[in-house]
Design a protein around this nucleic acid. Sequence first.
DNA 1: ATTTGTAGTATCGACTCGATACTACTAGGC
DNA 2: GCCTAGTAGTATCGAGTCGATACTACAAAT
Lengths: 190, 190
Amino acid sequence: MTYPTPYDLLERLATLLLAEERRLGGEWALQPVHLRVLRFLGRANRYSDTPAAVAEYLGLGKGTASQSLILLQEKGLVGAHPDAKDGRKRHLSLTALGRKVARRTTPPPLFRDALDRLGEHTEPLGASLLALLKALQDSGGSRAFGVCETCAHCEHSEGERSFRCGLTGERLKLRETQLICREHTDPAPG
Amino acid sequence: MTYPTPYDLLERLATLLLAEERRLGGEWALQPVHLRVLRFLGRANRYSDTPAAVAEYLGLGKGTASQSLILLQEKGLVGAHPDAKDGRKRHLSLTALGRKVARRTTPPPLFRDALDRLGEHTEPLGASLLALLKALQDSGGSRAFGVCETCAHCEHSEGERSFRCGLTGERLKLRETQLICREHTDPAPG
DNA sequence: ATTTGTAGTATCGACTCGATACTACTAGGC
DNA sequence: GCCTAGTAGTATCGAGTCGATACTACAAAT
């Protein structure tokens, strides 16, 4: 076995990312988890922009997620409005300020620089990380939270300009198919 | 640009790792940061087994690190003894219980499984992560916290069985050269 | 000897987080 | 329709992180 192992490296990078998020978030008095919430909400589709989806994405209890979301709403970074059909649900969205903060904090400059300077390592890095993420999902862990476009339920209708989700039966705009969905299902291989 | 980007993947993996650490640590009423402290102390050499080094490694203030270390000592996972020469310093070590917890929690089973199942992706994953880590260090961020063995200051003495640190002038046992050092410096290329 | 710097602890306030309990609403029988 | 589960979300409490600040103890340099 070579030192350091891939797990060593992953853990170290996760620690450095967390430290960087803490440092960066401090400028707006935000915690690392707040930045991850903002980043998620900026890319979540209409089935995934709810407190429950935030909790699931971050691996937190719904109570914890609710509390952080209330704080983000009080700070004017996140807005909420009720669902038209289901009175229990609330849809969350980034305010203009929330989008600004999200844009300025992710990727953290340190990571952006390093990734830019990676050159020919960039492509294998993406490929190996994707393979690892898929392996983690296969290991029975979490949902995929993939982009709608790549989902088994995503149907590209005849008209070329229209998409449809086979799970909900609803129509989707092109832009929506590039957002994260909590119901994402990997297509069967082949 | 392909979706997801390497940064997206890295952030997602960091989130999943944190969630897994939280789940796993909960069995011993430990926080994610506690597991990372234990893991670090189990691999830190004599120059790096102090509260200050823990703080630096995790990107925390020394006060914060001190507090978590006190808790770990109260739980009997970490022991401490004063430095022989410098009355200010305290050296930390894992107790038998601490080693047991560290061994059972890292890598988290989910990640261990996924990494095992990675097959031919394992080698490029390690290589790309290492390249990214080095790029981050070059970007002016953190110390390397590399293994002593690979440090520019590490001198392999004539006797074949003896090592010496060029920075402190002290002798090191073979086993010690495989531990993490906060003073680690990458050798000049070439 | 005095100053300056380093190692570590103590304390406070804001916040996370899990656990629990609660309200409000939906959906599935019947 | 009506009751029963089940789901979405909030409220509250206690343990703990975390930064900031202030403090003690010791070391090193002048």
